[in-house]
Simulated scan of single mutants.
Amino acid sequence: MRKTKLFMDTVVDIQVVVADKSRDKAEAAVDRAFELFRKVEQACSRFSQDSELMQATRQIGTAVQISPLLFEPLRFALEVAKWTNGKFDPTVGKAMEDHGFNQHYLTRATLHHAVADSATYQDIILDEEHRTLSINKPLVIDLGAVAKGFAIDLAANELKEFAGFIVNAGGDLYAGGLDENGDKWGVEIQHPLNKAQTIQRIEVSNEAVCTSGSYERRSPTHTGIHHLFDPERSVSPNEWISCSVVAPYALMADAFSTAAFLLGKERGVTLVEQVNLQGILIDSDLQVYRIGGI
């Protein structure tokens, strides 16, 4: 069975391998999986003034208790920020707004926040014991590099009892078990310059594959800027054109594909190797780097 819905500015496609007698159970599980996408979007979106994220960050210098749906992806984003010395920085939200990435995909509402230009991930403080968030100065947190992967993982957890399933959110996916033929799921990595072509095909089972690329979302207001942005240098790096990472969880694959892209060739490859993941990284000359045994 297969269902699709729209969440997080992308089409979420869920497929489940089912026997006839388990179809009703699969329908219910898929509905729960979609509901988790809705809840994560409500918690983590910077585009809605009513989201848990935006409400919490309006309280400067105050410890605000937040739900696990916000706390967990934010905690992971801050860990990756530390590992990359701030190249991957969830406080990039204001810079994204300034470069035209400030319109909600459904409402078309436009964001304008007057915040500190000097804010970094170090201005975000999480208290793990009490599950609270504090920020030191006005800032805009963007969880676009972790929230979708987190939602994919939660959805996959709802489907784990089935022999095979795939949760695909705009090309970022988790493939569980085996496909309808009893084989690993075949995943095609899109050619970054020609959507009709595949540059690599891999087979996965109980793994996630996420891709960060410069070819999908370009700034509507600034030439040469795409949605992968280095706030320190105020540029979009272009050593890579596409970075795909294979990991046990989509949260990891999502974050590390973005981090590898932002770090550039040498440091990006080193990062994927250091965290023992697999990667298919494509540079601006279309040279393919296969990491981790692919």
Rank of each mutant, 00 (worst) to 15 (best):
Y215T: 15
P237I: 03
T198K: 08
G164I: 04
L143T: 04
E161I: 03
S219C: 03
I125L: 15
T198L: 04
G149P: 08
E188F: 09
L126Y: 10
F229S: 00
L178T: 14
A145I: 01
P192H: 01
E203F: 09
G176C: 13
S214E: 08
A156E: 03
T223Q: 10
T223M: 10
I141V: 14
H226F: 02
H130F: 11
T120E: 02
T221S: 12
I202S: 01
A155C: 01
E180G: 11
V187Q: 04
Q200H: 15
V187P: 05
P220Y: 06
D230W: 06
G176D: 12
L143K: 14
Y174F: 15
L133N: 08
I202L: 11
G213M: 04
L228D: 02
A208K: 03
L193I: 07
K195N: 09
G224K: 04
D127M: 03
K184G: 09
V115N: 10
S205K: 00
S205N: 05
E203T: 07
E161Y: 04
V115H: 06
T223W: 08
D127R: 06
L173G: 11
V187Y: 00
L133V: 08
R233P: 01
N157H: 13
C210A: 14
K160L: 00
K160F: 02
V146C: 12
L193W: 08
I152F: 05
E129C: 11
P237R: 04
Y215L: 05
D179N: 15
P231S: 02
V209P: 10
G224P: 04
L111V: 09
T221H: 02
V204R: 06
R233T: 12
Y121F: 15
W185P: 06
Q190D: 00
S214V: 02
T198F: 00
G170E: 00
L178E: 12
D117P: 14
P231Y: 03
H227I: 00
Q122C: 06
G182K: 08
L193A: 06
D183M: 11
K137C: 10
H227Q: 02
R233Y: 06
H226K: 05
V167R: 04
N181T: 13
H112L: 13
I199K: 05
S212R: 07
L228E: 02
E161M: 09
Q200R: 15
T223C: 04
H113W: 07
A208S: 15
A147W: 02
S134T: 12
N194Q: 09
E161A: 13
I202P: 01
E188R: 11
A151G: 09
R131T: 12
A208M: 05
R217F: 02
V146A: 14
A155I: 00
N168P: 09
L228N: 03
N181E: 14
L193F: 14
H130S: 15
E216G: 01
I125F: 13
S134V: 10
V167C: 07
E129Q: 13
D142V: 02
H191P: 00
L111E: 08
Y174L: 14
A169P: 10
I202K: 08
I166R: 15
E129I: 14
Y121R: 00
C210N: 08
A147K: 07
E161V: 03
E232T: 12
A114K: 11
H226Q: 05
A147P: 08
Y174G: 13
L178I: 14
V187F: 01
E158F: 05
S118D: 12
V115M: 01
